[in-house]
Design a protein around this nucleic acid. Sequence first.
DNA 1: TTGAAAGCGCTAACAG
DNA 2: CTGTTAGCGCTTTCAA
Lengths: 339, 339
Amino acid sequence: MTMKRRSVTIQDVAQAAGVSVSTVSRVLNAKVDVASDTQERILAVIDELGYTSNLAARSMRSRKKNLIGLVVPDIGFPYSIEIMKGVNRAIAESTFDLLVYTTGDIHKNGTALHEQHYVSLLNNSITDGLIIVASAAADFITDAPIVSVDPHVVNPNYPSVQGTNYQGALDAMNYLLSLGHRRIGFICGRPEIGSAIRRLEGYQAALKNAGMDLDETLITLGDFSAKGGYKYATQLLTLDNPPTAIFAANDQSAIGVYQAADELGVQIPNELSVVGFDNISEAKYLGLTTVDQFLADMGHIAILMLIKLINNEPLEEQIHKMPTKLVERSSCQTLTGTV
Amino acid sequence: MTMKRRSVTIQDVAQAAGVSVSTVSRVLNAKVDVASDTQERILAVIDELGYTSNLAARSMRSRKKNLIGLVVPDIGFPYSIEIMKGVNRAIAESTFDLLVYTTGDIHKNGTALHEQHYVSLLNNSITDGLIIVASAAADFITDAPIVSVDPHVVNPNYPSVQGTNYQGALDAMNYLLSLGHRRIGFICGRPEIGSAIRRLEGYQAALKNAGMDLDETLITLGDFSAKGGYKYATQLLTLDNPPTAIFAANDQSAIGVYQAADELGVQIPNELSVVGFDNISEAKYLGLTTVDQFLADMGHIAILMLIKLINNEPLEEQIHKMPTKLVERSSCQTLTGTV
DNA sequence: TTGAAAGCGCTAACAG
DNA sequence: CTGTTAGCGCTTTCAA
């Protein structure tokens, strides 16, 4: 590790090259009005001294930072990972660098405050713009643009990319109905999150469309966790008249369902069909890639939108509808976005 | 979204509170020598104006930035995620904020350059120190301390936290041997990475210790990917005299083994035992948590080491040995670290 | 084509 | 306890 006590500054480079700092700065910023031999000499010195421009100083002085920030909730969720992948891909194709901040455990309180803290910290100083994933906070203080991905509550004041949760739930339910199921259980997500509610509404609408009655005992609480899924699946499967299929609000819940079924000796998929929304873990385990792609695309779209905002280009409203694909014991996810 | 054209500065706060900037600065940095009524007034103004300190300006002026950087390879790997979790946990218990940078696809070239770019960019400006996970680069130019987690090649010039790959492989093999297996296949990791080699050495040593001959046809190439695992498992399982057990170099490879076995109609674990190093995906799928913990602890330890370095405290050499736990079809991971 | 000089927002002496 | 002042490293006028 080459560890110097004081880093080499633009001053050092200027002195070594026998020019002024402003000339070095011009070279660094690829300005054209520099004599080519001067330029070469400076570049050589930069290389020799191992100079890197100081991010802080640069950010402070100039408006463009070439840096985009991504604020994601608990990275333990495959959901976050997949979005990050799409973001990474889009960043790689751009001229921006990416910094990621995680707000920690999504189930803990104070997430909204954490988010706001980071937004202020970053967007008022070193980043040109920010993507916020699954934000709990509804409002932010910021100078630079923000694009929100799957916010808990949609705020029409700023652009967002959202999964088509309602349609996805309809698709999943229609799939189960087409298999002949008439008693389908539903394990809900965290009720304060809009997407969980829209999935529930999709569940209810599908039953209604099929002309079936709603059995309230088949709808349970839930919290997007495997533990919750296990608890509520056990509840459903030990009913006097248990469901023949379960639609879980997300992949973690679905894992809990598998565990509960296993423990109770219920065979999947022979005795019980299971569909989980966002069923990433399983898809990955089974070597499927379709589901991941939806989320990655959300991240990708969000970055493209953000870059347009940063460049002051207009956003055209646009529906980005992903094809739906269902696999046994797995699920579907569709999304819309404005680019 | 509250979006102002120019952010409120410490100047604005000072003016509004009728004090000087330095007094505001003192309050911001929790200095004690400020009259409590002055402090209250300033805090009220800060709150009212929605002031947030400019990260760039602060970083530039003061040595302490309260920010730690984490550079991880491809976030698609559960390995990276688990380490990030441990890091997050340690950060939450500290006074530091965390910023993450990912170098993208681990299999792509140029990773080392990417790493060096970010180390210079961050560590010479806005971070107090950096954790680098699975670094491909061996050397860095940096002002602030670095702690390396599982570097490809260990550089004795700077502190590192490393998994006990050799011992872990021994444990995994002894487990398979204790099950009575005498023909055990090995699917290697990327050979340019030190940990892959140490796992191979553990495999070989275990056989030697058991007084068994080494059958070269049972050792295949590999690349830490499911695709590679599938390919080489197929190769092993279609041998004239196929192995009764396979030890895969990581969890991705193991997934490939399951796929290959499934396709060839080989029953696991009845006809074939499989152990995968770092078997995170499966452990998670099966609801196990032990394996994750090892990696998270590596991240945790790394942060504790880094904070000591930042505070100029000495590092004591210390072996942190995790208990070994083996589960059928899954694996073990132990680690050591200096804190 | 280049250099001198003015700050960006902030912290840290140094005085009072 | 508080204000004045001097920069941190960089970009950007404005002159030369």
